[in-house]
Design a protein around this nucleic acid. Structure first.
Lengths: 346, 346
DNA sequence: CTGAAAGCGCTTACAG
DNA sequence: CTGAAAGCGCTTACAG
């Protein structure tokens, strides 16, 4: 038994004690070398840091966290993995978080699996803050964070609760932009390809789109739900929409991946040309939207800014004790490519 | 100061002590309730577990790790974020790892940033094992893991060192499949769109492709390097390849994203039709390869199997003390869609 | 079967 | 400026 546990220790990881012994100092002194604010003689610190670098010692953040009550872990919960937007955001977000000397614990929830269990495990690591990147996460999950006293920031999604921090694109405004763009081009029969019904992104984009249509004197657009934000779902929803007797001449899709699916459906199932026979507007401006095979007109999310704000907000939440509240809504931007054009009669 | 530190404790997280006090038991007994193998009276355990569930207590894995020398963290290093293949793998891998009661610490390395630093920070959390998902990570990084005594498994990439564990698609075999497919279709002037030159995936796919061409009596194919695995790089590389006086009639691309870029270049820059004027074969079978806008003939990586094997290997490495060695090479599968066809003269 | 005690690797008042 | 001591939340021999 002793053997096994010694073996498991794999090569005896270096600790403060080792450093202290080797340098003939106390453990306390060695420890202090690693804190900017600690009072310690500059030469002492230099010696310690030098030696530490040589033998590759770094304080164990897990042990440290026990005392400081700060794990320097930020938890990220992601669920909507059929939408390339989130991986793009995830990797960039992670990069930025690392630069701030935090580390990311990633958790992917699968609605089929036990979501609460997953979140509970994440929380057991006591992340300093958690970022929810999931359009579709149950509010139970975010409640669990609150119960644990862990601040959370929602990325591009509201909590169903108040008192939370969210940074989001102005989805409603984006919906209005899409409506204006299409109406300006002379379209009158508009359709909406919806994603997951109760995702706040979906709801708001539709709300803005619809409201603007009505404001400008058009009837409310027809809409077809995709039930998820995926290529296949967009394909199917567009097929339904385009099967109508008097089909829409333009489609606004709740996001790019849906839009790409919708375009493929229009071409393949109905032999339509885009933008000649049908205009399409997406939302997000994911990387592939600009590829020449799609060249999608879309509302660009200001992801750089959103990521920056999220990181800033998250890191401020790790410092403040009080439960802060914030709502950062950043406007999107219309990006005209070649999937929309002026409507001539019909 | 005391106030501040109390506040930072945010709602006093529940500990074994609290449980012990509330139940009138010792801390040791409470602790034992959470270990299957511990010797404890069944009713005692039941009482403890029941109460723990009620007040939402879960042992702190960080504190536990200090003793057991096992963090139950698996580190994942990813770098190649322009290739959608990796996000797909990352999320699925993470899901599987969670199911095994481990948690994922995600680190994204940016060749521009200090890669070693990033890895060092990850290692300071003492993950039980790290999985390298990065086609392009320096061998210094994996050496750092070894130095720390942390086992690593490479996903779809060799270590430059021996004694490591890797699970990979049979890339060389895949290259041969591509060659056979194209040659069977009557193509004789073949080209290769390479990704990052020293990625082992790239090297092996090219090796197999080239070798098979020569075996079947053709000259070695021309090749153009893309320097990264991205749409834009594929676009540029194909443009170079297709500018030749006698352009290739078929292109094998080191992966799908490159292939999609290559197709767009062929269409847009040269007005070629695919597959009429040019056949294209990719590698990976990422989700979008099957979309009707691309409908790409490709070599499918057996990702499900690869992920399963990786997880199995990783979890076995957390148990065994000795540095294991393994090389799992799983064959790919030719998926014919509509970007290749028989070559008629020319 | 249970409890008191030691200890994991660290930090941080408290003395000196 | 430095060191000895207490303690973070846990586990695990060791006694009983």
């Amino acid at each position: 038994m002793i053997d096994a546990s010694l073996e498991r220790a794999r090569g005896h990881r270096i600790t403060v004690k080792d450093l202290a012994r080797q340098l003939g100092m106390s453990v306390s002194t060695v420890s202090r070398a690693f804190y900017r604010d600690a009072v310690i003689a500059p030469e002492t610190r230099a010696r310690i840091l030098k030696h530490a670098a040589e033998i590759g010692y770094q304080p164990n953040p897990l042990a440290r966290g026990l005392i400081t009550k700060s794990s320097r872990i930020v938890g990220i919960i992601v669920s909507d993995i059929t939408n390339p937007f989130y991986p793009e955001v995830l990797t960039r977000l992670t990069s930025r978080i690392q630069a701030l000397d935090f580390n990311v614990m990633l958790v992917v929830t699968d609605p089929l699996r036990n979501e609460d269990e997953t979140v509970r495990v994440l929380l057991s690591y006591h992340p300093d803050v958690v970022i929810i990147l999931a359009a579709t996460l149950s509010s139970a999950a975010s409640q669990a964070c609150r119960d644990a006293g862990t601040p959370v920031v929602f990325f591009n999604r509201y909590g169903s609760d108040q008192h939370s921090c969210v940074v989001t694109c102005d989805n409603e405004g984006g919906g209005r932009m899409a409506a204006d763009h299409l109406i300006d081009l002379g379209h009158e029969r508009l359709g909406f390809v919806a994603g997951l019904a109760d995702a706040s992104t979906n709801v708001d984009r539709w709300k803005g789109f619809c409201a603007r249509c009505v404001e400008r004197g058009l009837p409310a657009p027809v809409s077809s739900e995709a039930h998820e934000f995926s290529y296949g779902a967009g394909y199917a929803a567009a097929r339904r929409l385009l099967s109508a007797e008097r089909r829409p001449t333009a489609l606004f899709c709740a996001n790019d991946i849906l839009a790409i699916g919708a375009m493929d459906a229009a071409r393949r199932e109905f032999g339509l040309s885009i933008p000649e026979d049908l205009s399409i507007v997406g939302f997000d401006d994911i990387a592939m939207a600009s590829w020449s095979s799609h060249n999608l007109t879309t509302i660009r999310q200001p992801t750089d800014l959103m990521i920056e704000q999220t990181v800033e907000l998250a890191s401020s939440l790790t410092r403040e004790s009080a439960g802060r509240q914030a709502m950062l809504r950043i406007p999107g931007e219309m990006v005209e490519r070649s999937t929309t054009r002026r409507y001539h009669g019909g």
